[in-house]
Write a protein that binds this DNA or RNA. Structure first.
Lengths: 147, 147
DNA sequence: TTATATCCTACTAATTAAGTAGTATATTTA
DNA sequence: TAAATATACTACTTAATTAGTAGGATATAA
C-alpha cells in the first residue's frame, strides 16, 4: 500500500496541475482545504517535493507553490518514488528500497522473486506512463460517464 | 510491500509443495530451519493457514504439516490474501482492505483511483494464475539458466 | 513596517508488524 | 500406560514505521 503521504502528494500535485496556467501560486492552506489534507502535514510534503525538484515555491505574502514542469511531464511513478511509496511487493525487487532476503542463498534463482519481479514490471509500466494530465483526463471522462 | 508474514507463508508452502508426494508431514521446526524462519512466528503462520483451509496438521509425535490441496491449485493471490498482504496500492481499490478515501466526494469519478485500479488488475492477473508448482518450475528454470 | 507565507528542525502520538512465552492438548511408541 | 514429541492457542512484548504537530526563522509584498 502507498503511504498517505504519497496519496496526499498526488492530490496536491493534481491541484497544482489544474492551476498550472494561472500566474498565481497556490497557498498550502488553499490546497489543504480543497483536498482535505492536514495543513501541517501537507507543508512537510510540499517541502519535500520542492527539494526533489518537482515544485517551486514563492515565499512571503502572495507566495505559495507552483509546478516546475508541465503536468504532462510529471509521472505517477516519480511522485511515488519521491515520497517514499514502494511499488514492489518485496524489498528484493525494489529499486528504491532494495534489501536482500537473508534466507535466499542466491536471489537470481529465487522463483518467488521472479514472479514478484514480473508484477513490479507490470505496475511500473502503467505508473510510468501516467502523468498528472492523464489523471485529470481520466477524471473528466469518468465524470461524463457518470452524469 | 508484502509483510514478512506473507513471504514466510509462501516459503513455507513451497517447502510443503516439494514434500507433497511424501507420506510424512513436515515438522514446523524442519521448515523453520530450512527456510530460515523464526520458529514461533512460523508456528503462528501455519496455524492461520490451517484455519484458512490451505494446510492440514497432525498433532503429536511424528506430527507436522501437509498441503491440503495439490500445489498446482494453491495460488499466490490466495496466500497473499489469507496472510493479510495487501495487493492494491490504495485502500479504495482493495478487495480485502477496502476503505473509502474521506477526501473523495465520489470515488467512481476519481482519476487516481482509476489508475490504481488498473495497476491492481495487472498485478492480480499475474498473482492469481501463479501456483506453488509454477514458482517451483520457475526456480528450476532459473537454476538451469545460471549453471 | 506590518501582514502574510514558506522554511526547517525537532518532536509526539498512533498504528501496525514482528516476534515470544508458556501452558494445554493430542499422538506415537516402547 | 507413561514418556516423548508435536501442534493448539491465548496473551503478551518489542520494534519499526507512519502520521501528524509545534513553533520559531526567514523572505516578500504592499
Amino acid at each position: 500500500m502507498l503511504p498517505k503521504r504519497t496519496k496526499y502528494a498526488i492530490k496536491a500535485l493534481m491541484a497544482l496541475a489544474k492551476n498550472y496556467k494561472e500566474y498565481r501560486p497556490l497557498k498550502i492552506s488553499e490546497i489543504a482545504e480543497s483536498e482535505k489534507i492536514p495543513r501541517k502535514f501537507l507543508e512537510a510534503i510540499l517541502l519535500q517535493l520542492r527539494h526533489e525538484g518537482i515544485v517551486d515555491s514563492k515565499m512571503g505574502a502572495r507566495g505559495g507553490y507552483l509546478l516546475i514542469k508541465h503536468p504532462e511531464e510529471v509521472m505517477l511513478s516519480t511522485i511515488i518514488r519521491c515520497t517514499g511509496g514502494p511499488i514492489a511487493l518485496l524489498p528484493c525487487v525494489s529499486l528504491n528500497f532494495y534489501e536482500s532476503c537473508n534466507e535466499c542463498p542466491y536471489e537470481e534463482t529465487c522463483g518467488l522473486r521472479d514472479v514478484v519481479l514480473e508484477v513490479r514490471e507490470a505496475s511500473i509500466k502503467i505508473l510510468s506512463k501516467t502523468s498528472l494530465t492523464d489523471i485529470l483526463r481520466r477524471e473528466s471522462k469518468l465524470i461524463k460517464k457518470h452524469s
